[in-house]
Amino acid sequence: MMEHSIETAKQRNRLKEAARETGRNLGLVLYALYALFPLIWMLICTFKSDTEMYNTVFIFRPTLANYQAVLLGTDYVRAFFQNMIVSGGAVLLTVVAGVPAAYALARYDFRKKDDIAFQILSFKFAPEIMVILPIFLIFQKIGLYDTYFGLIWVYQLITMPLLIWVVRGYFEDISVEVEQAASLDGYCWYEVFLKTLLPLIKPGLVASGLLAFIFAWNSFTFPLILSGFRIQTLTITSLRYISSETVHYGQVAVAATVAVLPEIVACLFIQKHLVRGLSFGAVKG
């Protein structure tokens, strides 16, 4: 009799645990649908015609006319690759110049080091509209207006401050004895930096590099003023689907959907580094 009661209690506990597990999974599914609903809705709008945009919700006649108009009828594809060149080049220059700067701010003691670090960070907080006019005049005088290098250079104002501060926190958390031990093993200074320090700061470097790419990819003010007919990024090209007479919401949805794909793909590939990279290194300094 007692063994039967014990078995019944175990079955009851297993049912309760299964019910709790099902409830947790259902809650996660509902939260995922809630979080992804804007993307799902934007994807649905890409298959709607302008006449059905307001009249229907989920039941409509799908069409590929919006994709044809965006991907075949305009310069959107060219702008996509130009945006990739500018954003990728900006991140590459940020990493090459920003990592040594972060190391110097973390390791060396010199006058007003903290003031310089804060000044670098303040560039990220300053509104772009404050500096765009003098930059525009300077670029026209030195021939950088409507060039790849001009946009890549000016994008450092929005990409480099974040990377320097995140990576600086990682360098500060690495003990100096690690570098000294590597030097005793026969490594020269650049081998210590490349083979010992860079692997240790990889999570922070990847996370800050991804955010720098997102900031550069989504930039609007700088390419609006500093680019012309030769170079146009996605944020500028997408304005073609908005006119004073009407807004082609289906085409806008296609442009937005294609524009977020590189960011989503990059996040999926490096997601294991994001949580540690953003929560660990960024709180230092």
Rank of each mutant, 00 (worst) to 15 (best):
V29G: 01
F110S: 07
A102M: 06
T63K: 14
F136N: 00
V131R: 09
A106F: 14
F118V: 08
E128R: 07
T46S: 13
G98T: 04
W41L: 14
F125Y: 06
G143E: 09
Q156T: 08
K141F: 05
I40C: 08
A65N: 06
A101N: 01
G27N: 06
L163Q: 01
I158P: 09
F47G: 02
V131Y: 08
F47W: 11
F149S: 13
Q68C: 06
A117G: 07
L105Q: 02
V57S: 13
F80R: 04
G98L: 14
A106T: 05
A90D: 02
F60K: 06
R168P: 01
G89V: 11
L121Q: 02
F60T: 00
T159Y: 04
D146P: 15
M160Q: 06
A35C: 10
F110R: 12
L92N: 00
A32E: 00
E128F: 11
V70A: 14
L33T: 03
G73T: 04
P38A: 01
K141I: 05
R111P: 02
T63F: 15
F81Y: 13
Y148G: 04
Q140S: 11
W41F: 11
F47S: 04
Y67Q: 04
I132H: 05
F149V: 15
V77I: 15
L30V: 15
L137D: 02
I132N: 05
G143M: 11
